[in-house]
């Protein structure tokens, strides 16, 4: 398979007022840009620099929140510029320590279907469902072919945010196989909790019920956000996903959906998780081969 490699431009450094530093690695999304963001921010976390409050890797950029009384923003920028040069995530020997996670999704479920039907007047194609529309504009003959593509290859959590626990996920396939859809013409005022949505080149799981503009493709039976921290996976944090996680949005049927829901309600559910040393260089050289290996490790 032909893979298109992306050369990153020189990063752009800017201040977000006196308390934030914004670093744009590229204006366009790419796995290369995200690997760079993950690698630099993970070095920064280890460095534990006085005055650095929050380190937020983003899709093709990253954001640092600082206390400028303890670290001078200009000095930190100089340090970040040096990291841009020294941190080379695509070097042969570089790996990212990550988690492989199985995230079951009931695609084409009745609940998000009911929701999306209520908001057809805000959609590009009121005559079709969100899945039918997405399949058509991405060149899939049928909805089930689109679902196979979504379920087939894993996604990288490239950023967490907007609201607590919302994972932005970019599929780990070359750019020419990326699925892309516009956001709704006007955002919906309602989205079910745990809806699996898609906007631009990003998949998300909505942590809580609320407004939203992403196309609705399905519903996850398990939460990504749990304020009560009753499930084992939430013992350390109310938010499950972490930047750099590799999630497989596995297509499940109604029977499995009901079984997972029952486990979640009993408090016995836990995600299938495998710790993994991920090599961006190996992945970019052979995405399909590495994806086969990732799934093999995950379900071993």
């Amino acid at each position: 398979m032909a893979t298109t490699s992306v050369e990153l431009p020189r990063a752009r450094y800017d201040y977000g007022g006196d308390e934030f530093i914004f670093v744009e690695l590229d204006e366009a999304m790419s796995l290369e840009a995200n690997f760079k963001a993950m690698a630099i921010t993970s070095v920064l976390r280890e460095e534990n620099i006085e005055g650095v409050i929050d380190i937020c890797p983003s899709n093709a950029s990253y954001l640092i929140r600082i206390d400028p009384d303890r670290v001078h923003p200009a000095e930190l920028v100089a340090h970040l510029e040096s990291l841009e040069q020294t941190v080379q995530p695509l070097a042969e020997d570089k790996t990212l320590h990550t988690r492989l996670v199985d995230v079951p999704v009931l695609y084409n479920d009745p609940w998000t279907h009911e929701t999306l039907m209520r908001f057809r007047d805000r959609h590009q194609d009121p005559e079709a469902s969100d899945l039918e529309y997405a399949a058509r504009i991405n060149g899939f003959g049928t909805v089930s072919q689109l679902i196979d593509a979504l379920s087939g290859a894993p996604f990288l959590v490239t950023m967490i945010g907007f609201v607590p626990g919302l994972p932005f996920c970019y599929q780990m396939v070359p750019r020419d196989r990326q699925i892309e859809v516009p956001k709704y013409v006007r955002p919906r005022t309602d989205t079910p909790e745990r809806a699996f949505g898609y906007g631009g080149a990003f998949a998300v799981v909505y942590p809580v019920r609320g407004a939203g503009g992403y196309q609705l493709f399905g519903l996850a039976p398990a939460p990504v956000f749990d304020l009560t921290q009753s499930l084992a996976d939430f013992r350390d944090s109310i938010v499950f996903p972490r930047p750099g996680d590799i999630l497989r949005y596995r297509s499940i049927d109604q029977t499995e959906f009901d079984a997972v829901r029952a486990e979640v309600e009993k408090g016995t559910f836990h995600y299938r998780i495998r710790e993994y040393e991920f090599s961006p260089a190996h992945f970019l050289a052979d995405p399909d081969g590495v994806n086969v290996e990732l799934l093999e490790v995950l379900y071993r």
Partner: peptide
């Protein structure tokens, strides 16, 4: 491309 928003 979705990015982090500074406060303010």
């Amino acid at each position: 491309v979705d990015l982090g928003y500074p406060i303010g």
